[in-house]
Amino acid sequence: MSLLELESVGARYGPVKVLHEVSLTVGEGELVAVLGANGAGKTTTLRAVSGTVRRSGDVVFEGHKLPRRPEATARAGIAHVPEGRGTFSELSVWENLRLGAYTRRGKIRDDAKRVYAFFPRLEERRDQQAGTLSGGEQQMLALGRAMMARPKLLLLDEPSLGLAPLVVKEIFEALARMKEKDGISVLVVEQNANLALAHAGRAYVLEVGRVVVAGTSDELRANESVRRSYLGY
């Protein structure tokens, strides 16, 4: 059984329907990528899972249907790092991390230590306002905050957006380690298809709100049209 299952999920913004019958699965410990051009519905797919957009169809997590309330999604064990990272820019780094653990009871010092081990720079900036961090540091903070919740599934929206290649590398390496060490499953949206396929086991390609191709990373890399449209060689 998969951890997350989307069964013909649709979503709309007002009168505009942006997702049509999208079905996808994420298994335990899997890193799955969603690829596509601008406006294909990648971000909306994530938002449909976390319930921050009006949706139709079922989202099943660990065998239970998820209610369409972001708070409930978070409590069920899904951490969504949204577009633009969603850090609390007016709060300090440490306060951001505390908020990450909001749904949990008990001590959080150890979790914070784990986050600092992944991203030592966050520890140096512990009391600094999140808004004053660099883009890369903010992305680290967003990931760190998500880790604090000890989620079973991580939803990541364009983690590479606007970051220098070195920082992107650092972040994806951290992601890989998280997946290995904690068995977190990841559903990541990326425009940089090369990067995503290098790290993901499987991927879905969206075009105007529909899944047009799905398969393992190797299969997609071998697919003629995917290669031409998204990988650029």
Partner: peptide
């Protein structure tokens, strides 16, 4: 307090607070 922090978070960024599980 955790509640106090959640109150402040909900005030400055309700969307992200919801994603963190805060009942805004």
């Amino acid at each position: 307090t955790k509640l106090g922090l959640a109150l402040r978070a909900a005030a400055v960024n309700p969307d992200s607070s919801r994603l963190a599980g805060v009942r805004v």
